[in-house]
Nucleic acid binder design. Structure first.
Length: 506
RNA sequence: GGCCGUGUAGCUCAACUGGCAGAGCAGCUGACUCUUAAUCAGCGGGUUGAAGGUUCGAGUCCUUCCACGGUCACCA
């Protein structure tokens, strides 16, 4: 394909805009100039009129943005332009800008074009702050027509694939992603205020670990070796605790080779934070305080609207052991049913239908997921997890079948996960070996043995509390979105022929 | 992967039991110097997701496929 063929493929609307572009060039007007003038964004410009008396003109401004509405009335026109801060109205008069400029405006500009306009501010008869335009210029000609100005863009696939259209057409989508950015920023500030430093650890790893998941594989040509994309941040951050950094966090992308759902995207953003001389109880306090401070700063209140529920973040959040929750919802005591046959028998005795699992730990997890998890709408700490599911957490002093771990659930989703981090190198080796045995038994999601991590622990890691939570799920809760794709700018979608996944020569 | 739903103009959506594919916005032409979903007059715009089938006749019924959404399964 060359440029000529591409232009020939234009539809009627693109063709019309392209012809206007050519006409501008014929008149020595560049449709994509280098310079742009702007003294105020639209919100700041409107604010300038706050103290100006009725009927008085305000100061001169230069504003810039995308044309979202045009109302031509012969020798005068109104238009609205939009920038990130909002919209402002422009008033264009033939006798103000001159015959030639007015004619050019009528002939050359379309909805979607980006322009700048300068002139004094005033209020219209209906009180709207407006720029009385004395001069304008085109900053970028749009060849594609924007979506319907009242309804925006609703086609879900196009919204995700062409997110730029979604953003420019739907104000609330732009707001949503600005809010997500603020959430990330507030979390960062909270942790920094507590003495955490932000670090960056490798995405490309020769050995992955730290979570139960399948990894993506890629290849390093120069080194002639396969590398993995990380599935968690855990093991590198704990190496930094060994190194003496004491309080570290990373907000980074994880990649897990698994399916898509309303709460799973194959790449997602995880926050992990590790604090030396702390344990999982300190991490509860940290999580609670962080979310409360974000909610206050963002909304000025501690309630969230999510999926038809009002979620109350007011601390303290209820804390329950997994044992007690399972006991009250199913009548099964995990301390009594502490082997696979005993637990199976207990489930059968209660007449529950739980998917069969190969091990005690997995069956506990399945039981919990089925009978307890759906009921956890309000923020709830679930403490003490089966040893087998938690290869990086310290065992309970009084029951080695369970570990010092919690997960926080809200809105029916698991959101956070934290441990009193295991720092005994020989016990850690034993856990890795245990994982290896599970892998040999057919579990593809176990953590491989990481001898360098053992080596790090052998230098001594202080008692440490660690926590991780999904920033995407946090954003879902704080913005009231029920689908993770709504809070990810460019979510993973199925391949299309134009993705380059098809062979170019075929 | 199973089940349910959706796919019609650039965008948002109609079209009854099968009977000439429509509206609003957007576009084009013209009028209009305080409009704001501007208004008024006129005009153009369609491979109804794709392929096949039933029928005198299919947007509509049947089969297969594709895409998206929901849900279940899978999935820390």
């Amino acid at each position: 394909m060359d440029q000529e063929q591409f232009i020939e493929s234009f539809d009627e609307y693109q063709q019309q805009r392209y012809e206007k572009l050519l006409a501008l060039r014929d008149n020595q007007i560049e449709p994509y100039p280098i310079d742009s003038e702007r003294t105020h964004d639209s919100r700041a410009a409107v604010a300038l009129m706050d103290g100006v008396a009725e009927g008085e003109e305000g100061p001169e401004v230069a504003v810039a943005g995308r044309i979202v509405a045009i109302r031509k009335m012969g020798k005068a026109s109104f238009l609205h332009i939009e920038d990130r801060s909002g919209r402002i109205q422009l008033y264009l008069r033939k006798d103000e800008v001159g015959e030639e400029s007015y004619a050019r405006f009528k002939a050359a500009l379309d909805l979607g074009d980006i322009i700048s306009a300068a002139g004094p501010l005033f209020r219209t008869r209906t009180g709207e702050v407006t720029v009385r335009v004395t001069g304008w210029s085109l900053l970028a000609k749009a060849l594609n027509q924007p979506p319907d100005k009242h309804h925006g863009l609703t086609d879900t696939e196009q919204r995700y694939r062409e997110r730029y259209v979604d953003l420019l057409a739907n104000d609330e989508i732009r707001e949503l992603f600005i809010t997500r950015s603020r959430i990330t920023s507030l979390v960062r500030r909270f942790l920094e205020d507590r003495g955490f430093i932000e670090v960056e650890t490798p995405v490309l790893q020769s050995l992955y670990g730290g979570a139960a998941a399948k990894a993506f594989t890629t290849h390093h040509e120069w080194a002639k070796r396969d590398l993995y994309l990380r599935i968690s941040l855990e093991l590198h951050l704990k190496r930094l605790i060994v190194g003496g950094l004491e309080r570290v966090f990373e907000i980074g992308r994880n990649f897990r080779n698994e399916g898509l759902s309303w709460k799973h995207n194959p790449e997602f953003t995880m926050l992990e934070a590790y604090q030396a001389y702390a344990d999982f109880r300190d991490m509860m306090e940290l999580l609670e305080s962080c979310w409360v401070s974000v909610a206050q700063a963002l909304n000025g209140r501690l309630t969230l609207d999510f999926d038809g529920h009002t979620i109350d973040l007011a601390p303290p959040w209820p804390r329950h052991t997994m044992r007690n929750l399972v006991l009250s919802e199913s009548g099964i005591d995990l301390y009594a049913a502490h082997t696979l046959p005993l637990l199976r028998a207990a489930i059968a005795a209660q007449g529950l239908h739980i998917d069969p699992q190969p091990t005690w730990g997995k069956l506990v997890d399945e039981l919990f997921s089925t009978v307890v998890e759906p009921k956890l709408i309000q923020p709830t700490f679930v403490m003490e997890y089966p040893y087998e599911l938690s290869p990086f957490a310290k065992q309970l002093p009084d029951n080695p079948n369970f570990v010092e771990r919690f997960e926080m659930f809200v809105g029916g989703m698991e959101v956070a996960n934290a441990f009193s981090e295991l720092n005994d190198p020989l016990e850690q080796l034993e856990r890795f070996l245990d994982q290896q045995r599970q892998r040999e038994a057919g579990d593809e999601e176990t953590t491989p043995i990481d001898l360098d991590f053992i080596n790090a622990l052998m230098y001594g890691m202080p008692p440490t509390g660690g926590i991780g939570w999904g920033m995407d799920r946090m954003a879902m809760l704080f913005t009231g979105q029920r689908n993770i794709r709504e809070v990810i700018l460019f979510p993973t979608l199925r391949a299309t022929p134009t993705d380059g996944t098809a062979t170019p020569n075929s």
